[in-house]
Every structure is written in C-alpha cells, then in structure tokens.
Amino acid sequence: MSAQVVYVCDDPVKAETARQVLIRQGFPENDISADEIDIFVYDARSYSSGRTDAANSKWIVIGRK
C-alpha cells in the first residue's frame, strides 16, 4: 500500500463523486471505502487532539493502492 487518499464529504452524493474520482485515478474499486461516521478520529501523530467534531455525520472516502 503506497498511497492513501482521504476525502471528507458532506453528503452521499459528494462521497460518490469522490469514489468515482478515485476510480478514475486508478485506485482499485475494491480498495475504496466510503463510510458515514459519527466522530472522525484523526491521525493522532499529525493532530494534537487526534479527534474532532467538525466532521460529525460526514462521509469519509478512502482510496488505497
């Protein structure tokens, strides 16, 4: 796994757009996840709190390849 791209989307339509963008960029379709989340937990090494409420109820689309 050399690349990981994360999109935070407001609604399922934008999440589907992000998923399609990743597919067109060559990310394997089976390795793209799209989840509606309650609380988004950031990478704690990059963010001091490791947690935010700003992304509550948003869709997280992650492409991996």
């Binding site: 339509v13 934008k14 589907e16 757009t17 992000a18 998923r19 399609q20 379709e29 869709w59």
Partner: peptide
C-alpha cells in the same frame, strides 16, 4: 460499503456524481 452508499442515492444523483467526477 459501496452498496450502502449507492442505496443512499437515486439513479439521478449517482449519474450526477459520475458526471462531476
């Protein structure tokens, strides 16, 4: 996951998403 996302969309919304992408 994909089917859950697709189930949340109407065919028109999915077409719009593909066009935008």
């Amino acid at each position: 996951t994909e089917s859950a996302l697709s189930a949340a969309l109407t065919p028109e919304q999915k077409q719009k998403a593909i066009k935008t992408a």
